Simulated scan of single mutants.
Amino acid sequence: MKNKKIKEWIMEAGFVLVGNLIVALGVTFFILPSDILSGGTAGIAVALEPILHLPETLVINVLTVGLFLLGSICLGKAFFLKTVLSTLVYPVYISVLSLYFSDMVITDNQLLASIYAGICIGVGIGLVYRVDGSTGGMDIPPLIVHKYTHLPLSVLVMCFDGATVLLGAAVYGIEASMIGLVSVFISGQVINKVLTLGSEASKTLFIISPKWEEIRDAINQELDRGVTLVPALGGYANEQRMMVMTVVKQKQFANLQRLITHIDPEAFFVVNDANEVQGAGFTFGKHYRSDRVLTQVQTKETA
Rank of each mutant, 00 (worst) to 15 (best):
G226A: 04
G226S: 06
G226Q: 01
G226T: 03
G226W: 00
G226F: 00
V227E: 02
V227M: 02
V227F: 01
T228D: 07
T228P: 06
T228W: 06
T228F: 13
V230Y: 08
V230C: 10
V230H: 07
V230T: 10
V230E: 06
P231A: 00
P231T: 00
P231K: 01
A232Q: 08
A232W: 12
A232F: 07
A232T: 08
A232V: 10
L233N: 13
L233P: 12
L233Y: 15
L233T: 12
L233I: 15
G234A: 06
G234T: 01
G235T: 08
G235F: 12
Y236Q: 06
Y236I: 09
Y236E: 03
Y236P: 00
A237L: 15
A237E: 14
A237V: 14
N238E: 12
N238K: 13
N238A: 11
N238G: 06
N238P: 05
E239Q: 14
E239T: 12
E239L: 10
E239D: 13
Q240L: 11
Q240I: 10
Q240D: 15
R241C: 13
R241S: 15
R241F: 11
M242R: 08
M242S: 09
M242T: 14
M242L: 12
M242F: 04
M243K: 02
M243W: 01
V244E: 02
V244W: 00
V244Q: 02
V244M: 04
V244F: 01
V244S: 04
M245H: 04
M245V: 05
M245K: 03
T246M: 08
T246S: 15
T246Q: 08
T246R: 08
T246E: 09
V247Q: 02
V247C: 08
V247N: 07
V248M: 00
V248E: 00
V248R: 03
V248A: 03
V248P: 01
K249A: 07
K249T: 02
K249Q: 07
Q250G: 14
K251A: 07
K251H: 12
Q252I: 05
Q252P: 05
Q252M: 06
Q252D: 13
Q252E: 15
Q252W: 05
F253C: 10
F253D: 05
F253E: 06
A254F: 14
A254N: 14
A254G: 09
A254L: 15
A254M: 12
A254E: 14
A254I: 14
A254S: 15
N255P: 07
N255Y: 12
N255C: 12
N255G: 10
L256K: 05
L256I: 08
L256T: 09
L256M: 15
Q257T: 06
Q257Y: 05
Q257S: 08
Q257E: 08
Q257C: 04
Q257L: 04
R258Y: 09
R258H: 14
R258V: 13
R258K: 12
R258M: 09
L259Y: 04
L259V: 03
I260Y: 00
I260N: 00
I260K: 00
I260P: 00
